[in-house]
Design a protein around this nucleic acid. Structure first.
Lengths: 205, 205
DNA sequence: GTCTATAAGAGGATAGAC
DNA sequence: GTCTATCCTCTTATAGAC
């Protein structure tokens, strides 16, 4: 793939900076409390300039979501090549990554009720594509883990998939961190343990 | 306790209607997307009248949270008297109730990031009291369930408590309901099973 | 594409009559 | 305590010069 002209690269770098800021603000305060003024001030450009890059506040959020999905997809690529890992290992690694992102304040989360935002996301080809291909891939690993009896085959795979996604925006890690009693990796370890043990086949099976 | 005059009772009834509306709207769209105009229109009174009852939008939300906590506390009272139930049974019943409320669209949830709202809640004596007494009671049952070996004694009790509270606002039941494949009680059963199995002691213990 | 300045409108809150 | 009418701030988005 061509890299484009120098000018285009500059543009790309600036947009990356914008998205990084949006990403952080979405993780910190959420979509509704994040203001476009704030984003512009944080990036260091005028608000009008920001609107030359992204058509709306919703588009900003969508771009941040696409970026995090791209990073997630890259992780899936890596994990798929690791022949030494079981399907359950891969699922554990994905959940672990998501919770680490969240604990570092770099996991953007969006309100699922906002219909304007929802429309913008579903209108984004890239977003929908990434979400579907990632879900397909995770779905395969879930089926494999069930075949391995690492996950209860009686559970509908979508239940497993949804709980995996839910771990990425679970408030519990944040609460535990707020107590100041646990390091990030301890929190992740406890969350993984309770999540995965809840999916195991019954002892008698 | 005296019931107060007839006029005071009327007032109480109206405020109950307001809180019921707020409760539903908070469950449907969340705090940020709920507007005071909407609440007033839904109740059928003018917005200015609404402000005679509650000083601010935050106060409205706090009242709704107090109501749900009161209902939860009433449930805890009932469960405490049931000598036939184990500690784990009681915890299961509480989680079950919370998820049923959520699936019926009657569980108000607030954004944990909004500091104005947080300040209002922590400034409400009744809210803080209810939260603390309920947490204490649940904490006792958690310790008892750990003594019974129904919950892994190695897990910090607060982890169990937080995951219990988190079940009340977990997005997974809503997603499962949206697929149209499961009845509410099936969803609750699957969620309970995965939650509680995740807390069990390891098989070897 | 960047800026300053401003439009446009939503939404929380209040004034003042009854 | 209820109403109508209004205020005022905040926020999204754009106009228009450079």
């Amino acid at each position: 793939m061509a890299r484009g002209s120098f000018r285009q690269q500059l543009l790309r770098v600036r947009e990356d900076a914008i998205i990084a800021t949006v990403n952080r603000l979405l993780a910190e305060k959420g979509f509704d409390l994040m203001t476009v003024d704030e984003v512009a001030a944080d990036v260091g450009i005028a608000k009008a300039s920001l609107y030359k890059h992204f058509a709306s506040k919703e588009a900003l959020a969508a771009a941040a979501m696409v970026r995090v999905l791209e990073r997630g997809a890259a992780l899936l690529d890596e994990l798929a090549e690791r022949a030494d890992l079981s399907a359950l290992d891969r699922l554990r690694a994905v959940a672990s990554w998501a919770m680490e992102q969240q604990l570092k304040g770099e996991m953007p989360t969006l309100p699922s009720q906002n219909s304007t935002l929802r429309a913008e996301l579903l209108g984004s080809q890239r977003y929908v594509d990434l979400l579907m291909t990632s879900s397909d891939r995770l779905g395969e690993w879930i089926l494999q883990a069930q075949a391995d009896k690492a996950i209860d085959p009686a559970l509908p795979p979508e239940v497993v998939l949804y709980t995996l996604f839910a771990r990425a925006c679970d408030p519990v890690p944040g609460f535990l961190k707020a107590t100041g009693q646990y390091a990030d990796d301890q929190i992740v370890a406890m969350m993984l343990r309770t999540w995965l043990d809840g999916l195991r086949p019954p002892a008698g099976a």
